[in-house]
Nucleic acid binder design. Structure first.
Length: 962
RNA sequence: GCGGGAAUUGCCAAGUUUGGUCAAAGGCGCUGGACUCAGAAUCCAGUCCCGUAGGGGUUCGGGAGUUCGAAUCUCCCUUCCCGCACCA
């Protein structure tokens, strides 16, 4: 009885005790260094992690089986805020987080009290890290990972920090680091930058930042300053809107007098403006006054707009009724509203005289876009917020991508809106006519502390400048020399490489490594995980020898990684002895570069691109990465897997509920890399049965085959030789699949197709002895090739075969091509075709049990002509020339039609060689009769329907006596 | 919008790089049969349409083209998915 859980634990323990996956340099053996990105230790592993690591494991085992010395390590990522967020949420007693952590911890701990204790301990971030890294380890062990755990570390380790410091010193020296201004989300109460984890509902809201342009309209001795997202519409401004009941101020802003809403002061102050309030007043005071246009002599009227929100931007809005639905409808409303005009003592005629100014031409629009969109969305009044928002969005989208500025826009005429925006802002600011103001896209974004989040501008943000020097060129050079599998993703990389510019690389908070030359900053999590694979090569030596962080000075890595510096001096400086330094350098030089990195496609646009960039920045060409293979994510029953859907399947449950080998098989076989694995319970149960059948089939025969030699010389029947040949060819093909990193192809061939062959063989053969000989040869090869996917099951079967070593450490020899025989296979294919034809006819005539079936092979002249057609590759003229040499042929009235039909069939492209059909049929008589359950007569005189005329070479005519 | 990917016979999904051997692998589902007290499992047969002789017809998102020949190559269109920067 197949008991996967028992078998799996047994072998996992044995592997661990024998430490067979611990890899050390062996100087005369070729190596393969394969990695998948270290997982984040802020939660338990799920089957998505399972997919990439199992794939990696299958490759690692394959490389080992091919005789390579294989390093397959892993570590843990903890940089950034997620771990801190867990701790602070636990500390605050947040119920959602506590519930989630209880759920996570319960995966491995079933005692309620203990669970509670563990979750409480999470107030300390390192407890979170330690807990989840340990569950990862046990989960990964439970699915049979062949990892070298001695080389484990986390990105928060002091030793690791030293590596990252060195990396950033190098980047700094190369001139790839820069400082600049950068807007960030900011909580004024905490005085800190905030990210997704710090924001209420941060995971569902849009956390982008809008850049507003504040236009300085001259007004008295200062400026009235509306803010806009569409500065290119400045030429279409007709008036300004002020909320009459809002509070406004005269304020001194960086030595200029601005009129803005009271609430705006707070925003400006946090964006590096010096602000002093001079006077406070109600908005109504401004109504009816006028500002001067930026360009030209027009004066724009200040009008009442209740819709103006004084808490958004500057609380002042300029009106572009031709292109902004809100402005358009407000203007229409006001023009109709006599009471309002009365109330603010506005000039009726002047109000009516305000006409929208169209400054953007839009193909297919006869009227002002704002008007058309208001009509399209059936906007009735300025109170229809929802309709107005939709109308605005559509209006803007259309104008942004399709609109062109017209002749009212001076120098900007005929620019596309998308280009004009950038130019207008640039020039306005350059000329001192405008300023910038940043706001979160989402209104009322709240920090978890309750405070409203605003945008602050960091003046000295650190950036990595990917356009610096020849960095990009080198990255492309590396990419061009790499294998990307599947290759359809290469374009993706190229595009990302082109698009990468500057990227902030440090943050103000979170776990990680401090920037060595600016200790206020912590290196951001995607920037500190680019060359860490190098650390796998030496970390275990550092740990074993008790090397302390302060010993890992710049000279250390310079020497070990780059062979720079004098070893005596490095030793003196680091207080690490020369021998050890040499050993580490040797180990690094042995393992590096990373030969193969395997992960999900979501990492292309960030991690994998940075991985390449940072490697080319720091390491010489010989240490650049070589292969990246990519997978699509795992989905569950056709649905995305996610916390919010609540359908995440933890790796912790896999072995118990399914078994490691089943998981490994399913995850490897059910989809090619380029498509999503769909985790379907029903499908998995089917696969489970397949594996069970395989196990039973194997075990049923394992004793019997001990009686035979497993020697092809002892195999008598052709059929048996054919099956052996076919199996070996399948193995060879399957291995080609592995070489192409195509796991699905490899398993389809090595598991399903070989299994089908053997099952059919077992059913149709009548030579028991031969059968055992075949099995004796095939079985060991079979479980070897399957062992990389189902290592536990195959170890068990290996043991049952009487072997006393691990199949996991068995090096494959080449499959024995002496067992293959193409000629025999062709013969057999011919016979199978005949059987299929007979079956087909039986099906059509709906007869199941005829007694006699007659087969007629083609007459000699057809054979001869067939040879001619073959030799002339279907050239009709040449064929006829050749036929003319034979009078008999030329007299045959069927000749031309026969040649024509054979040419049409393109027979010369088929691989049938000169088979002696009659002999073959005779030889396979018993096989054929067994398959069709009738007696066959070959080339009998009896041919009542003259079927013989239909016979062509390799397609004998058939007559069934019904 | 930009960039990338995809569309195959009831469903999932190979095949496309290198055009012909493709009515198109495999799995699921469905239909019939065997086994069984029964079910599950397993096994056998069938599963685009027509056909009492191995054949014929119509298919690979839609349209046009190249070719003796197109699921595969070219062009246009439609639909869907993913990424678009500080969340890892």
């Amino acid at each position: 009885m197949y008991d996967p859980q028992r078998i799996e634990r047994k072998w996992q323990d044995k592997w661990e005790q024998a430490r067979i996956f611990e890899a050390n340099p062996i100087s005369d053996r070729e190596k393969v260094f394969i990695t998948s990105p270290y997982p984040y230790a802020s939660g338990p592993a799920h089957i998505g992690h399972g997919r990439s690591f199992v794939n990696g494991d299958v490759f690692a085992r394959y490389y080992r089986a091919k005789g390579y010395n294989v390093l397959y390590p892993m570590a843990f990522h903890i940089t950034g805020t997620p771990v801190l967020a867990i701790s602070s949420s636990i500390e605050r007693g947040e119920e959602n987080m506590i519930a989630r952590m209880i759920e996570y911890v319960s995966l491995h701990t079933h005692e309620e009290k203990k669970v509670k204790e563990i979750v409480e301990s999470f107030v300390e971030p390192w407890n979170v890290v330690n807990y989840f890294s340990s569950t990862y380890k046990s989960d990964f062990k439970s699915i049979g990972m062949s990892l070298d755990w001695r080389r484990e570390f986390t990105t928060g380790d002091k030793l690791y920090n030293k590596l990252i410091e060195w990396q950033f010193h190098k980047l700094y020296d190369k001139g790839y680091l820069e400082k600049g201004e950068y807007p960030i989300l900011y909580c004024p109460r905490d005085g800190n930058a905030v990210g997704e984890d710090d924001i209420s509902r941060g995971d569902e809201l849009n956390l982008d930042i809008n850049e507003y342009t504040c236009i300085k309209f001259p007004f008295g001795d200062g400026y009235l300053v509306p803010a806009t997202l569409r500065p290119e519409t400045i030429y279409g401004a007709t008036n300004l809107w002020i909320n009459p009941s809002g509070i406004y101020v005269d304020a001194n802003v960086n030595e200029e007098k601005w009129i803005i809403s009271e609430e705006a002061i707070h925003l400006l102050v946090n964006q590096n403006k010096l602000v002093r309030v001079l006077r406070k007043f109600k908005g109504s005071e401004l109504i009816g006054k006028k500002v001067k246009e930026l360009f030209g002599d027009r004066e724009l009227l200040i009008l009442p707009g209740e819709f103006v929100d004084t808490s958004v931007a500057t609380g002042v809005v300029y009106s572009v009724p031709a292109h902004a639905p809100y402005d358009y409808i407000a203007l229409v409303d006001l023009q109709k509203d006599k009471d309002m005009q009365e109330k603010f003592k506005l000039d009726k005629e002047e109000i009516e005289g305000i006409k929208p100014i169209q400054i953007i031409d839009l193909p297919g629009f006869e009227d002002f876009p704002a008007k058309i969109y208001c009509e399209r969305f059936k906007v009735e009044s300025q109170e229809d917020f929802e309709k107005l928002d939709n109308a605005t969005a559509e209006n803007y989208k259309n104008e942004f991508y399709n609109g062109v500025l017209n002749d009212k826009c001076a120098d900007y005429e005929s620019l596309k809106v998308s280009d004009a925006v950038v130019k207008v802002v640039e020039e306005l600011i350059e000329n001192g006519k405008a300023d910038k103001l940043y706001l979160p896209i989402t209104k009322d974004l709240k920090c978890k502390c309750g405070e409203r989040i605003i945008v602050s501008i960091l003046k000295d943000q650190w950036f990595l400048n990917y356009t610096a020097g020849n960095w990009k060129e080198k990255a492309f050079e590396c990419l061009n020399s790499m294998d990307i599998v599947p290759k359809k993703y290469r374009m993706n990389f190229e595009h990302i490489f082109n698009w990468l510019e500057k990227r902030p690389c440090a943050r103000k908070r979170g776990l990680g490594t401090k920037l060595p030359f600016d200790k206020d900053w912590i290196i951001e999590s995607l920037s500190d995980s680019t060359i860490y694979m190098s650390f796998y090569t030496i970390i275990h030596i550092l740990k074993e020898n008790g090397i302390q962080p302060d010993q890992l000075v710049i000279e250390f890595f310079d020497y070990v990684y780059l062979d720079i510096g004098d070893i005596q001096e490095v030793s003196k400086k680091t207080k690490i002895n020369v021998g050890l330094l040499k050993q580490m350098q040797k180990e690094f030089f042995y393992w590096y570069p990373v030969d193969h990195r395997h992960t999900a496609i979501m990492h292309i646009s960030n991690h994998l691109s940075f991985y390449i960039f940072h490697h080319v920045a720091i390491f010489p060409r010989k240490h650049w990465p070589k292969i990246i293979s990519l997978i699509e994510p795992v989905i569950i029953e056709g649905q995305k897997m996610g916390k919010s859907i609540g359908n995440v399947i933890a790796l912790a449950d896999i072995q118990q509920n399914y078994s490691a080998d089943l998981f490994r098989f399913y995850i490897s076989h059910s989809a090619d890399f380029g498509i999503m694995v769909d985790w379907r319970e029903k499908q998995i149960q089917t696969v489970k049965n397949h594996i069970m059948r395989f196990y039973n089939f194997f075990v049923e025969n394992v004793i019997a085959i001990k009686e035979v030699e497993g020697d092809i010389a002892h195999i008598n029947s052709k059929y048996s030789k054919i099956v052996l040949s076919k199996c070996i060819n399948k193995f060879i093909e399957a291995e080609k699949g592995l070489e192409e990193l195509n796991l699905r192809k490899y398993l389809q061939l090595s598991f399903y197709e070989v299994f089908n062959l053997l099952q059919e063989y077992s059913k149709h053969t009548d030579n028991e002895r031969d059968k055992l000989e075949v099995y004796k040869i095939v079985f060991p090869e079979w479980i070897k090739i399957l062992s990389i996917t189902m290592p536990h099951l195959c170890e068990e079967l290996w043991e049952k075969l009487g072997k006393d070593n691990f199949i996991s450490t068995e090096v494959w020899t080449d499959f024995n091509i002496d067992y293959t025989n193409i000629k025999l296979e062709r013969e057999f294919d011919y016979v199978s075709d005949v059987v299929d034809d007979i079956m087909n006819i039986l099906k059509i005539v709906k007869s199941s049990s005829p007694e006699n079936i007659y087969l007629y092979t083609a007459p000699k002249w057809k054979q001869d002509v067939y040879e001619i057609i073959n030799s002339k590759k279907g050239d009709f003229k040449e064929i006829m020339e050749q036929c003319k040499f034979s009078n008999d042929l030329m007299k045959n009235k069927n000749l031309i039609s026969y040649i024509k039909s054979q040419i049409k069939e393109r027979v010369w492209e088929k691989e049938s060689n000169s088979l002696k059909e009659e002999l073959i049929l005779e030889e396979y008589r018993s096989y054929i009769e067994k398959r069709i359950m009738a007696k066959i007569h070959i080339n009998s005189e009896y041919d009542p329907k003259n079927r013989l005329a239909k016979a062509v070479p390799f397609k004998p005519a058939i007559y069934i006596d019904l």
